[in-house]
Amino acid sequence: MTIELLLQQVLNALSLGGTYALLALGLAIVFSMMGLINFAHGEIMSGAGYGLWFVILVGLPFGLGIVAAVVTGLAIAVAMEKIAFRPVRSASPAALLLTSFAVSGIMQVLFQNLISPKGRPVAVPDVLTGSWTLGTLHVGTIQALSIIVTLALLAGLTVFFRRTRMGIAMRAAASDFDVARLMGIRANAVIAAAFGVSGVLAGAAATFWVAQRGSVDPLMGFLPVLKAFIAVIVGGLGRLEGAVAGGFLLGFIEIGLRAFLPDDLVAYREALTLALVILILVLRPRGLMGRARESVR
């Protein structure tokens, strides 16, 4: 195996893992605030994809489509919190999970009926479908962009969480929600913000996903978000860095299997990826960065 091929695979893994990381981070932010694993996160992603699709459909430039995807993701996420999750905010984790499960099913049907059960093509401009050649390395433009934008987003979020008042307030709320309210932080505002951030991240992930596949369908978000769930758990529930690490880990495992799996096993790639990651939980049931449950009180 050549260095080039290896580098190529690393780029692939960074691109795919980055997308998982964005989704997982959004899930983890919401979870850390209110203990909800949002099953309907995939529908936020699909919805964002439709935002992109619609803007292209009416003939606007792709750049605006990206904005539309992000804005749609944000809007759906915030609306979802307000309509579906606020009434059950203090319910048990199982009740929250089932609520989001129902929301997910309902939204899939809405997409199927209001748009189409079939995939809708999204025309990606030629500038993006091309690739650059660096020596013997082929780098797809979208792939390169997705890596750059993901890293920029993660860096931006790091700045947001470290430098801005809202970002710091959100970290505080994630670590101790009750005491955060004692600091004057509004519960509704900070949870809405958490959903908002998760929606923006899902919007970005949707853009990469659609741009690489050229179409959007009602179930588009399901599989990537499922993997993001698993990334969150493997990273350690509620740990934001863990979620990002879990996302990239999943990307590397998946690309690794795709590259090195013998041909007759390629069909089992998805299954093997998931199985390998779940097996990590045998060794560390609380996840890679999970904290032990023991405490003073």
Partner: peptide
């Protein structure tokens, strides 16, 4: 809890 549920989904 949630970790078990997600593992079953996997």
């Amino acid at each position: 809890g949630a970790a078990a549920s997600i593992a079953t989904l996997g």
